[in-house]
């Protein structure tokens, strides 16, 4: 089993096809609800995925202006999706096992299909926590999403925990993983700013209200500090 942080290791990475040619950036991730779990099922590419991530007010505004440029396109806001099955490996870029020609197309979603979300809609959501779970008064938000990847029978890559803390997604700059500790002044500053940030395990006690845009963490949820050692 391996873990990775969705925002740190996948979002905004370069997508590269089997011949080494560039396809685009991972503008967002597609999350699908499967019996209680939130599973990563695809990479989303295109301005329709990128623009909404510009912030909770600016993002939708930009996206609607973008759609307005050509109102005759019905699917203008719908980003293209690359299924996770065609991802070969994730290094500093995301390498695919297919060629890029004709690769990008939007997901065709039938009625009654699975419920899908975007990672971008989960990041930056305000978190309401039961007392004692997360330092109150610091306007905690979802900073990143830790993913579990189980090779083998199910091959699923699913949400395992939420990183909750003050600031914005990306504010940790990668210093939360415990492997990066230099340069000392920068690492120290980030660690101090995030001394109250917590990992909240996905499962009972964690509710995401996608409509209202809010995460609730009850007393039943498991929380722990970012770095296992400290």
């Amino acid at each position: 089993m391996s873990t990775m942080d969705a925002s740190l290791h996948l979002l905004d990475r370069q997508v590269i096809d089997v011949d080494g040619r560039l396809v685009g950036k991972v503008d967002d991730l597609e999350l699908t609800e499967e019996d209680g779990a939130l599973v990563v099922t695809g990479l989303l590419l295109g301005l329709g995925a990128l623009l909404p991530r510009f912030g909770r007010r600016l993002g939708p505004w930009l996206n609607s202006r973008y759609a307005q440029i050509s109102v005759s396109h019905a699917a203008r806001r719908v980003p293209a999706v690359i299924d996770l099955d065609v991802v070969d490996r994730v290094e500093s870029g995301v390498h695919l096992r297919v060629a890029r020609e004709g690769l990008l197309r939007p997901r065709v979603q039938g009625i009654g299909g699975p419920v899908r979300h975007r990672l971008g809609a989960l990041l930056d959501l305000p978190v309401r926590a039961a007392s004692g779970q997360i330092e109150p008064g610091r306007r905690p938000r979802v900073l990143d999403v830790r993913l579990d990847h189980r090779p083998g029978e199910s091959e699923r890559c699913e949400v395992a925990a939420l990183l909750v803390g003050a600031g914005r997604p990306g504010a940790l700059l990668g210093y939360d993983r415990g492997r990066v500790g230099a340069p000392a002044p920068v690492a120290g500053l980030v660690a101090w700013l995030h001394r109250h940030s917590r990992l909240v395990d996905w499962g009972p006690g964690v509710e995401v209200d996608w409509e209202r845009g809010e995460v609730t963490v009850t007393a039943a949820a498991e929380t722990r500090p970012l770095r296992p050692t400290s």
């Binding site: 905004d12 990128l50 997604p169």
Partner: peptide, 15 residues
């Protein structure tokens, strides 16, 4: 094999 603006977006996010 990542150049400057790859890294800028990866570390600082889209905005």
């Amino acid at each position: 094999h990542r150049a400057v603006f790859d890294l800028v977006r990866e570390r600082l996010g889209p905005r």
